[in-house]
């Protein structure tokens, strides 16, 4: 708390860098998602605004700003206005614990390239991201619309069910490393092997659970447009709707950043050991590239798989993923005790 001003400036600069990366995810992904789904469905997609339709997100943003912002007369005003803000808050705080490069020495000071180098690292990420569910539930409740309410109820049960499996799969990664710090996990993977190889089971659980945690198809039951219109955000319009949109993509990117850091070496590349400014820049580019691959998988899965039924979703979460993640935890604990990891 009582750190000197150079550290505060360094933290602000680091946050600005990460914020710059994550704020741009939504407009870029908007374009990628629409072009990719058009490609998968064998149609052109948005291709009129700018080269390859690249300026379409700008046009969309302008449209959102000038659209009428409707608040339903029977809505609970305060909660209705709070919900989109609550959606953005965890989305733009979770990435502070993700490291994006090796330690940097500037003017005799060693600066770890992570916005918040705290001991509880991963736990802080899980804690903050677990608060995201309130925005969905409150949006569903405050809209005073039966479809929204059903979406909110679905969101609360779904997110809690999959959070368990997600957390257990993350815990297994921490066992051989013996630390909650993501930078220690990256260092461990640099010294040994990417976690995805010994913990392929845990990675599978993490992957499936992160689709459910971000409400993406095949698990987008809280919005399920064919049965609930748009679920929890049916009544939202203009910039408030855009806020939910932004939060969804930022949450995806944050979970992708956590996933690549836990299972794919984070900012590091095998065999590459750069330091100084070059190392920092290569680290950041590597991390962003790895997140980009994950986002492409998110899009690919969304437009390839049909939506689950709600009972199927619950059965998968409690009867398949949860036992699998516990099995993975026991396996990894045994391997760690035996000294194989």
């Amino acid at each position: 708390m009582n750190s000197g001003s150079p550290e505060i400036i360094a933290t602000l600069v680091k946050y600005a860098v990460m914020f710059g990366v994550f704020i741009n995810v939504a407009p870029i992904m908007n374009w990628v998602e629409r072009r990719a789904c058009a490609y998968i469905q064998d149609r052109p997609g948005p291709n009129r605004v700018g080269p390859l339709g690249l300026f379409q997100p700008l046009a969309d943003a302008a449209k959102f700003m000038f659209k009428e912002d409707v608040t339903p007369a029977a809505a609970d005003k305060l909660l209705y206005l709070m919900a989109p803000v609550l959606a953005l808050l965890p989305a733009f705080t979770t990435f502070v614990i993700v490291p994006f490069g090796p330690d940097l020495t500037v003017g005799g000071r060693t600066i770890p390239l992570v916005v918040a180098p705290v001991d509880t690292g991963v736990l802080l990420f899980l804690a903050l991201s677990s608060l995201a569910v309130y925005s969905l539930v409150l949006a569903g409740y405050a809209s005073n619309n039966k479809f929204s309410l059903l979406g909110g109820i679905r969101a609360s049960a779904q997110l809690i069910s999959y959070e368990l499996a997600l957390t257990l799969s993350v815990l297994a990664v921490l066992l051989p490393v013996n630390s909650f710090r993501l930078s220690d996990i990256v260092a461990w993977q640099q010294a040994h092997v990417w976690n995805v190889i010994p913990q392929i089971l845990g990675f599978f659980v993490f992957l499936v659970a992160s689709f459910a945690e971000t409400n993406r198809l095949p698990f987008d039951l809280p919005e399920a447009e064919s049965e609930l219109i748009a679920g929890f955000h049916t009544e939202y319009s203009a910039m408030r709707f855009a806020a939910f949109f932004q939060a969804e993509y930022t949450n995806m990117a944050a979970l992708a950043a956590l996933g690549v850091t836990l299972f794919f070496g984070g900012w590091s590349l095998p065999g590459v050991h750069l330091t100084g400014w070059l190392g920092a820049i290569v680290g950041l580019v590597t991390l962003v590239a790895k997140i980009g691959v994950c986002m492409a998988v998110f899009v690919w899965v969304r437009w390839t798989f049909p939506r689950f039924r709600y009972d199927q979703l619950m059965r998968l979460g409690w009867k398949v993923l949860l036992p699998l993640s516990i099995l993975n935890l026991i396996l990894v604990a045994a391997m760690t005790l035996a000294g194989w990891l």
């Binding site: 705290v118 001991d119 509880t120 736990l123 802080l124 899980l126 804690a127 903050l128 677990s130 608060l131 569910v133 309130y134 539930v137 569903g140 409740y141 309410l149 909110g152 109820i153 609360s156 049960a157 997110l159 809690i160 959070e163 957390t167």
Partner: peptide
Amino acid sequence: APFLGALQILIYAGAIVVLFLFVIML
């Protein structure tokens, strides 16, 4: 005690109170 703080948010604020809301809405 940052560990207790993180667990407090993760378990109570992030999971148990969500179930309260779930029941209230149902």
